[in-house]
Design a binder for these strands. Structure first.
Lengths: 136, 136
DNA sequence: TTTTAAAATTTACAGTTGTAATAGTTAGTA
DNA sequence: TACTAACTATTACAACTGTAAATTTTAAAA
């Protein structure tokens, strides 16, 4: 984990596509943009280029075009972005954040049950574990 | 809710202070910055000014200085920032997001229990309510 | 009332982001 | 092999951010 580059809002769109499936050409990336996204081809290529400058994407040549692939992991990025959000908005208080989300969000029964299951499991563990939180 | 202005990372620090206690002078805001924040006075005043331009802060004169107070609510801002984060990182999938957070975060027993309580309550309601989600 | 010190306002400046247009390169095609 | 269409790379430019310094205003002090 060398030091995650900062990924902007638009760049996230590109990364999400690439993480789902790669390697991929610029052309393909454009095709995979969520509907409603109204970016010109050039704009998308600019984003791709910036991501390469940031070392978030790598490429290999293939005929006339490049095949891009991620150099940073989605998990790491999600973790970093979550950390940032949590600090900015909730001063790092994860419990408060989740309470808030639960109260404001509509969830399906399945989701509720899954969350309950996770909590149940956590409840058993928390008491056992030290406050460290890093296990393989 | 006219249309929330976009609050930057640094500006959030100012807003969080003002929301906690207001009205407040620039001087006081500086004093309430979290320790470790290494901003010059001028920098803080720049942020305050930008927040006024954005109509996020208002003021009333008091002697030689201004007393600032919020013009936008914390709840609204938190909601907006959460929405943005959720879309950017999880494509809007709240359940996925919470699952992820629960799995990555260390929580106290109290917090776990509180979350369980909220879920329990939600479980009763979800089945009753329509999928609308807007009640007074 | 003039001075002055503290506040606020204006200006600065580089880096990031959104949004492309334009220029340069190159692999196929004629 | 020369041409061209598709790709990539470079350049553009304004708005937003982080970070202040310089300037102007003004209430309080002398």
């Amino acid at each position: 984990m060398e030091k995650m580059p900062k990924i902007s809002e638009s760049e996230w769109e590109i990364m999400k596509i690439i993480w789902r499936e790669n390697p991929m050409t610029a052309e393909q990336i454009v095709q995979h943009l969520p509907e409603g996204t109204d970016w010109s081809d050039q704009t998308v290529r600019t984003f791709i280029n910036r991501l390469m400058k940031k070392k978030a994407l790598g490429y290999q040549k293939s005929g006339r075009s490049y095949l891009y692939y991620p150099l940073i992991s989605e998990k790491e990025c999600v973790r970093e972005e979550s950390r940032s959000f949590l600090n900015r908005v909730f001063n790092g208080a994860a419990g408060l954040m989740m309470t808030n989300f639960l109260e404001e969000t509509q969830l399906s029964d399945q989701e509720i049950e899954q969350l309950q299951r996770i909590l149940l499991e956590k409840q058993g563990k928390e008491t056992r574990d030290s406050k460290d939180g890093s296990q393989p």
